[in-house]
Design a protein around this nucleic acid. Sequence first.
DNA 1: GGTAAAAATTGACCTAGGTTAAGACTTCGC
DNA 2: GCGAAGTCTTAACCTAGGTCAATTTTTACC
Lengths: 194, 194
Amino acid sequence: MYERLKANLNRHIKLDDEAFDLLRKNLVAKTYKKDSHLIQSGHICKYTYFVHKGLLRLYDINEKGLEKNTLFAIEEWWVSDLYSFHSQKPGNYFLQALEDTEVLQLSKHAMENLLLQIPKLERFFRILHINAFIAQQERVMFMISKTAEERYRDFIQKYPDAEQRIPQKQIASYLGITPEFLSRMKANLRDAPR
Amino acid sequence: MYERLKANLNRHIKLDDEAFDLLRKNLVAKTYKKDSHLIQSGHICKYTYFVHKGLLRLYDINEKGLEKNTLFAIEEWWVSDLYSFHSQKPGNYFLQALEDTEVLQLSKHAMENLLLQIPKLERFFRILHINAFIAQQERVMFMISKTAEERYRDFIQKYPDAEQRIPQKQIASYLGITPEFLSRMKANLRDAPR
DNA sequence: GGTAAAAATTGACCTAGGTTAAGACTTCGC
DNA sequence: GCGAAGTCTTAACCTAGGTCAATTTTTACC
């Protein structure tokens, strides 16, 4: 169970056994049923989650009342409403399981303590958030520069198993298009592929 | 000159004089003329910049040959091609001065040393990048959820002096619309304000 | 200070993607 | 295993925003 977490940390830092153990003691394993929520808009987000198994979506509800996905988190992703988690103010996002999902949950309080006790974790999360920023920045550039079809192609290439695991309406919402239009695009691609 | 930097650091951490002095020794003050480039696409990005005075734009050139702005950096912003800076691989972005600009420049090598010598800096940049991520995430949600006019209103509200300092075609590129359409939108707003 | 280039505006026309609605196909609860 | 609800598809029509081109305004340069 913790092997996946260890592998994840090892991408950026080396932790000795003692530090890893301390981290592990502060994590709580939880499972969530498909469709249940880990985070609710309007509430203060208490936890950051490491996805061990499953699939989550982070979304908000815009002023027109529509759900818009901002990210999907699969195995080995860290996910939270970062604004709410770090400011400890009410957030705007919902986090929902799209499959039965197992996570390791880290509270804000535990995280602050760990950062003091294991300075390398500051480095780990710094690098993690740099990469998250770069990915979001690229996504903005895609929104600005590419057509819906180009963004869709890019999406299925980057997340090859997404097509199987994620309902189309969720993918459409992530891409910023309607499910109807995604459906039409797929029909076009079928007729005139590549 | 360093007061602005000190204020910036103080937003998230407290540095003693010794540490601040060490940081200062690693920074190099540079000035760039309007229209000159600090970073070139295709090159490895050697520096991160703290903007002391002036205005920069970070942009790429997409496959259709169009320049697209991903961010404007004004006084007290940190800016770089983070992907290239951190990976030390060739980047895709250009960083250009839109006004005569004074920056403090920090090399990758100096930064790595500083992070080891002043662990609090890990914390500082971690928080900085969390906030940068949150802002980009919100920008993605705006692209997905709002009309061009709503995004324009939001932009001029968030950056009140942008209208004076930044040419319209640059703002249009940032918003993901054509200069022609921005112009027409402004005409509409003039006729039917609010 | 005059002119050449760049930026902004305006107008006619076009298209990617949205909207609404109806039918078909899946999924899920009992 | 069956009905209800949700999801996906298809089609007709609509609109926000793009394209192209001509005109005016601003900026930059000798």
